[in-house]
Amino acid sequence: MIEPLTVYTLPNCMQCTMTTRALDAAGLPYSVIDLTTDERASDLMQQFSYTSAPVVVTRVVSCSGFRPDWIAKIAALRDHPSLASK
């Protein structure tokens, strides 16, 4: 099973909403961090040169913006035998 993703968001962000809806539809677990209320998270995103929200982070990769293609790939990996045993 895939570990929960972290989604860094902004209020009233359409791409953020579309991303969390796509993650819900794919059945992927995630936690949300609001970049306007978490200064440490905001600093981290700036440090990694992300300039737009949402930013979706897994244990090993991350992406920015609404990326349904990326969400589909993560969902396809969810039940992969090599991940299911971990």
Rank of each mutant, 00 (worst) to 15 (best):
T20R: 03
E3F: 11
V32P: 00
D79I: 05
K86A: 12
K73A: 14
I33T: 08
V56H: 01
R78D: 15
R21Y: 13
L23K: 00
D69A: 08
V55S: 00
T20K: 03
R67K: 13
V55D: 00
G27A: 09
P68F: 08
R59G: 13
T6W: 04
T51L: 12
L10G: 05
T20C: 08
A26P: 02
K73W: 15
H80C: 06
V61K: 10
M45I: 06
G65A: 05
Y30K: 11
Q47R: 14
V61C: 12
L28Q: 01
V55G: 01
L83C: 04
D69M: 06
M45P: 00
R59H: 15
D43T: 10
L83E: 00
A25Q: 12
G65E: 07
L10T: 09
P11Q: 07
S62P: 03
T19D: 09
L5P: 01
P68T: 07
C13H: 06
A84G: 08
A25R: 10
E39N: 11
Y50E: 05
T51R: 12
V55W: 00
S85Y: 10
P68I: 07
K86H: 14
A72P: 02
D38M: 10
D43F: 07
N12R: 14
K73M: 14
A25T: 08
T6K: 10
Q46N: 13
S82K: 10
T37H: 09
R40Q: 15
W70Q: 07
P54Y: 00
L44N: 10
V57T: 04
G27N: 05
Q15E: 12
Q47S: 12
P29A: 11
S64T: 15
L5G: 05
L5S: 05
L28M: 06
D69V: 05
Q47F: 13
R40K: 15
M1D: 12
T6P: 06
T9Y: 02
T9I: 11
L23T: 01
L44C: 08
T19M: 03
T36S: 12
D79F: 09
L83N: 07
V55Y: 00
T37S: 13
T51K: 10
R21V: 12
C13M: 07
T17D: 12
S42V: 04
L83P: 02
K73P: 05
S85H: 14
Q47H: 14
L83K: 08
C16P: 01
A26C: 06
V60G: 09
M1H: 13
S64L: 07
T19A: 04
